[in-house]
Amino acid sequence: MLIWTVLRRLIYSIILVVAVLVLNFLLIHLAPGDPADVIAGEMGGATEEVMASIRKAYGLDQPLYVQLWVYLKNAAGGDLGQSFFYNAPVLDLILSRVGATLLLVFTALGFAIVAGTALGVIASRKPTGIVSNLVTVLSVIGYSAPIFWTGIMLIIVFASLIPLFPISNMYDVTKDVGPVGYVFDVAHHLVLPAFTLGIVYLAQYSRLTRASMLEVLGSDYIRTARAKGVSERKVYGRHALRNAVLPIITIAGLQFGGIVSGAVLVETVFNWPGLGTLAFDSILARDYPTILGILFFSAVIVIIANLITDLLYRVADPRIRMAK
């Protein structure tokens, strides 16, 4: 049953990936502008003959449906094309940057889920208390503040006024600190970007956990457990939290695409060498193959995250596993 579910999800995912490839290709190529002009601009200008040769070299002289077919055929074989701007294979560019983005995204998401769930559980113990109200206020502030504004404020406070953390790059290229020192250096550079990206989602998870916990704590089986003399720690940890965490798993999977897109702003603010800065530079240069490759990888990451979320949901809730 589980194998058939996974297989069916994989088939749907492949269809969705193809649809994303087609839609992204059409949207990018229907946008105004000519990448040949950008390439010629990098060369200091070019004649009409040179412009024609540039378009022919990159296949831009072909009809749109021919370019789409060639792109889909090459993508199926793992070839995402050659970057106009970087003059390098798009796949190599993405693979060199995707690790930094995934590190940032998973760190921010893990921080948001753990801290947000903990704050939500604490707030649910006394819904009208000072701690609960404080969590609510901080959640509203964290959710309302734009990501780039939060990043700039953190840079001003913790890199300028109180110089505790670096403000750019993933590590200090001027230091030779060895493997262990490199890990600590990356972690040091990761603090501000991950906190900036995670604070928005932390606010959502704290509010969601608080609401779910309050709903679960009012259930009959919770009252029965308390009547049997089960300790409050077991009531909250073993009974209430396990059921309250189900909406959090769902929202985490659905929001994964949002947190990947939010990483573009964070990487730009902190000059983090991930897919966000690569996408930003490629958009300015109208580098079609690189933009399409980044969108493709982002879509694949989101689809895989949703598939994993669906499987985790079945593990967390036995009722779904037993449902026909």
Rank of each mutant, 00 (worst) to 15 (best):
R233L: 09
V105A: 13
T277G: 02
G81V: 08
R319F: 02
V302I: 08
L197N: 03
M170P: 00
A263S: 11
A46Q: 13
N306H: 15
V269T: 09
E232N: 12
D287G: 00
D185C: 13
A316D: 02
T268F: 08
R97H: 11
A100M: 10
F84W: 15
I155F: 06
R97D: 04
G229C: 13
V177N: 15
L161F: 09
A57E: 14
G262V: 12
G77I: 10
R9P: 03
G59H: 08
Q82C: 05
Y236G: 07
A263F: 03
G33E: 14
I294N: 02
A57W: 06
R207H: 12
Y58C: 01
G258V: 02
A40M: 03
A57N: 12
L80V: 13
P146K: 09
G44P: 01
A88E: 13
R226V: 05
K228T: 11
T47A: 12
L102T: 11
L103R: 12
A244G: 04
F297L: 05
R8S: 15
I167Y: 10
P146C: 08
V17D: 01
A76G: 07
I156A: 11
A76H: 12
S83G: 12
H29F: 02
G181R: 09
P89H: 11
V137T: 15
G33N: 14
K126A: 12
A194P: 04
T290V: 09
M322V: 07
G77N: 06
T150H: 05
K228S: 08
P179H: 09
L241M: 07
H188V: 06
V17E: 02
K56N: 13
H29L: 03
S219N: 13
G178H: 13
V70S: 07
L21S: 12
I199H: 15
G181N: 06
N74E: 14
L208P: 01
G276K: 05
A76V: 08
A240R: 02
I156F: 06
L138M: 06
H188I: 04
S282Y: 00
S298V: 07
S231Y: 00
I113L: 15
A225C: 09
I14C: 06
Y182I: 04
A194S: 13
L103W: 12
V157A: 10
V17P: 00
W69Q: 07
T101C: 14
R55P: 00
L60C: 04
V157K: 10
F111Y: 14
T268R: 14
R9I: 04
P32A: 07
I152W: 05
L26T: 12
I14L: 07
R207D: 10
N24F: 11
L16G: 14
I283Y: 09
I304T: 05
V137R: 10
P193S: 12
